Amino acid sequence: MTNPQPDSGAPDSAEDSPLGDGDLAALLERLLAEADRTQKELAEASGIKYPTLNAWMNRTRGTSRINPDHLRKMAQVLRRWGAQVTPREVFEAAGRVVPGPTDEEREARLLRIYRALPARQQRSLIGIAEDMAAAIRIS
Rank of each mutant, 00 (worst) to 15 (best):
M1F: 08
T2L: 14
T2V: 14
N3S: 12
N3V: 15
P4K: 05
Q5Y: 10
P6I: 04
P6Q: 08
S8F: 15
S8W: 15
A10M: 14
A10G: 05
D12N: 14
S13Q: 09
A14K: 05
E15K: 02
S17H: 08
S17E: 09
G20S: 11
G22V: 10
D23M: 06
D23C: 09
L27R: 09
L28E: 07
E29I: 02
E29T: 14
E29H: 09
L31E: 12
L32Q: 12
A35G: 07
D36Y: 10
D36N: 15
Q39K: 03
E41M: 12
E41C: 06
L42K: 00
E44Q: 03
E44R: 00
E44C: 00
A45E: 10
G47R: 06
I48N: 03
I48L: 03
K49Q: 08
P51Q: 12
T52K: 04
T52S: 06
T52L: 11
L53S: 02
N54E: 11
N58H: 13
N58C: 08
R59A: 06
R59C: 04
T60E: 14
G62S: 13
G62D: 07
T63A: 12
S64K: 14
R65I: 01
N67L: 05
H70N: 15
H70L: 04
R72F: 15
R72Q: 15
M74D: 11
Q76E: 15
Q76C: 04
R79V: 09
R79I: 02
R80M: 08
W81V: 01
G82M: 01
A83W: 05
Q84E: 09
P87L: 15
E89K: 11
V90L: 04
V90Y: 00
F91S: 06
F91P: 09
F91A: 11
A94F: 07
A94L: 10
G95A: 12
V98Y: 03
V98R: 05
G100R: 11
P101F: 13
T102R: 11
D103G: 06
R106Q: 13
R106H: 08
R106T: 01
R106M: 06
R106L: 15
A108Y: 00
R109D: 09
R109K: 11
L111N: 13
R112N: 07
R112Y: 04
Y114P: 00
Y114S: 07
R115S: 07
L117S: 06
P118L: 00
P118Q: 04
A119M: 02
A119P: 05
R120K: 14
S124G: 04
I126Q: 13
I126R: 10
G127V: 01
I128A: 10
I128W: 10
A129T: 08
E130H: 12
A133M: 02
A134H: 12
A135S: 08
R137G: 00
I138E: 10
S139C: 01
